[in-house]
């Protein structure tokens, strides 16, 4: 299973827990944090960039900076790229268990490599994927929110095409209904694309940017709240382990 949070922000948090700390906590829970930074040019942007990079580093993921000028298409491309990267990262860890941590792909004879890569691709395509998109909807993000919405739709489209299951959930921060909520859920675990349409109309732009607390809330959600299908899957966990063992035999 691959679990990841994609934070889309301009990186200028100003309330509560340091988002870098929160990201490190996510990593401890086996959740990878990727950050898409949508920044303006200038000093403000520079500060944001630093926070974005450190957050991704602490969360074991990638950070991608997009300047507001080149928005829509690039946010989409970067979002897709981070998802693919995270899947590859997790599959690679799995691979190390199988071929041993001291062996790398290039040590294998091209013929063996062929089989290993076939297995990698199967895993990439079929592994269960859980993605939470956490969108910064504070006032400074206002001019960029349409591009973010396009990117969310685009990502859903890519995830839906996989043979394996992809569950997506969507949050924005700060909360717009309750002022004390660091983040508010827009979409509970879902595999549906249709529900996502025109989602961001609900977002109310406000001043504070509680990135750290929002991230913390999402981590808690990922750890404790599972979709109905996922609950069934967890109940059948033992079978999954058996399958894992078979896979190892197959490769070695």
């Amino acid at each position: 299973m691959v679990q990841q949070i994609i934070v889309i922000t301009d990186g200028c948090s100003n309330v509560g827990l340091d988002p870098v700390t929160a990201a490190a906590q996510a990593r401890e829970e086996n959740i990878i944090v990727n950050v898409i930074g949508v920044v303006d040019e200038g000093d403000f942007g520079l500060r944001g960039t630093r926070e974005i990079e450190e957050m991704a580093k602490a969360g074991g993921g990638l950070s991608k900076i997009v300047h507001s000028k080149q928005l829509s298409q690039t946010v989409q491309m970067m979002t897709r790229k981070t998802v693919v990267h995270t899947i590859q990262q997790v599959v690679n860890e799995e691979l190390q268990h199988i071929i041993g941590s001291t062996t790398s792909l290039e040590d294998l004879h091209p013929n063996q490599r062929e089989k290993v890569v076939d297995v990698i691709e199967d895993l990439e395509e079929n592994m269960l994927l859980r993605v939470v998109l956490l969108v910064d909807a504070s006032a400074s993000m206002k001019p960029k929110i349409n591009a973010v919405e396009d990117a969310v739709h685009d990502l859903m489209l890519s995830l839906q095409a996989r043979e394996g299951k992809s569950e997506v959930s969507l949050f924005h921060f700060p909360g717009s209904k309750n002022k004390n909520e660091p983040a508010e859920m827009d979409l509970d675990w879902s595999t549906e694309y249709a529900i996502m349409k025109r989602l961001f109309y609900k977002i109310n732009m406000r001043g504070a940017t509680p990135t750290g607390p929002a991230l913390l809330k999402v981590i808690e959600y990922m750890v404790h709240k599972h979709s109905d299908d996922e609950i069934k899957r967890l109940a059948g966990m033992k079978d999954v382990h058996k399958k894992g063992a078979m896979l190892s035999d197959y490769i070695v």
Partner: peptide, 10 residues
């Protein structure tokens, strides 16, 4: 990238 090249070769 090794993996994508190998995937192409496959």
């Amino acid at each position: 990238d090794e993996i994508s090249l190998q995937s192409e070769i496959n």
